[in-house]
């Protein structure tokens, strides 16, 4: 029971981290909250369902599309809409929220409110020290951590990664050394969409895809991002584990119905007590 709980929590938290990293990346660089981030997750889940379970494509075709489309969608949202309004964070929130709403209603009217099963990339179970785990979830864990490490390396080691850090720190500095801000913003939106699409693939097969799957993912990612300190990727990963453990713990040991409330109550508490989060830079909020 305890082992089962621990392994579940560790796996689910790593998926949450993927969603949260994208959100925090966009915020740290652009200073805006992307409420349409849930759409990327939902796209990942729904596309793999549609292509594989509905149209009968090979699973890897589904995977490829479910990763590529959210990334491109996120980039398109940035280039088409957000680029023009990013100096007004509240308007950005309103616009992205409307995109989320449009998406939700689109799914609700075309597919319905019933949840669909997103196909697993690797079927079957794994037995590990007496713990039953779905192979797909183990894959989710491995993939998530590969990506998390890759993101860290990308940020720390590559030129573009350093440009991202620089842009998140100052507005004028990067411009002085020739960093093109627009390109950095677009890059973060692309990466965020990519990570969310991958997370959606696994999140969809773990929870099932319904019309609110994007909102669900977003509402989990929010407390994580805020707890970790908005803009801190390390903090987001850490917070993903804290929130994931609390959530799975409540579901396993207390009352599954509480799972929807607790993260929000934690979030509201954090915002009121320590708005800069665990590892945040303590900026003026």
């Amino acid at each position: 029971m305890v082992l089962q709980f621990l392994s579940n929590a560790i796996i689910v938290s790593s998926m949450y981290a993927l969603v949260a990293i994208g959100l925090t990346l966009i915020y740290s660089v652009g200073g805006v909250f992307n409420l349409a981030h849930g759409v990327n997750v939902a796209l990942g889940a729904w596309l793999s369902w549609y292509l594989v379970a509905n149209l009968g494509f090979n699973i890897w075709v589904g995977v490829a599309v479910a990763i590529a489309v959210p990334a491109l969608f996120s980039l398109a949202i940035y280039l088409g809409l957000i680029r023009h309004i990013q100096d007004r964070p509240i308007i950005v929130m309103t616009v992205t929220l409307l995109i989320e709403i449009i998406w939700e209603y689109f799914i609700r009217t075309t597919v319905g409110t019933q949840a669909r099963t997103v196909p697993q990339i690797v079927p079957g179970n794994v037995n590990f020290a007496g713990v039953h785990l779905l192979s797909n979830l183990v894959l989710a864990f491995v993939v998530s951590w590969v990506i998390i490490v890759a993101v860290f390396l990308f940020i720390d080691r590559t030129k573009f990664g350093k440009a991202i850090v620089a842009t998140s720190m100052s507005e004028k500095g990067p411009a002085l050394v020739g960093i093109k801000r627009g390109r950095v913003y677009a890059g973060t939106w692309l990466i965020a969409g990519l990570l969310a699409g991958i997370a959606g693939l696994f999140f969809g097969s773990y929870r099932g895809a319904d019309w609110l799957v994007g909102q669900t993912a977003l509402l989990i990612a929010f407390p994580i991002v805020v707890l970790g300190g908005i803009g801190s990727i390390r903090g987001s990963v850490l917070a993903a584990y804290i929130i994931g453990f609390i959530e799975i713990g409540v579901i396993t040991y207390y009352d599954p119905r509480m799972s929807g409330v607790l993260p929000f109550i934690i979030l509201i508490g954090i915002l009121l007590v320590r708005p800069e989060g665990l590892l945040g830079r303590g900026q003026e909020v």
Binding site: V32, F33, P89, I90, V226, L271, L272, V285
Partner: peptide, 11 residues
Amino acid sequence: ALRLSGPYFAV
């Protein structure tokens, strides 16, 4: 909540 500004208040 109003001690928080902009996006935080919205959240």
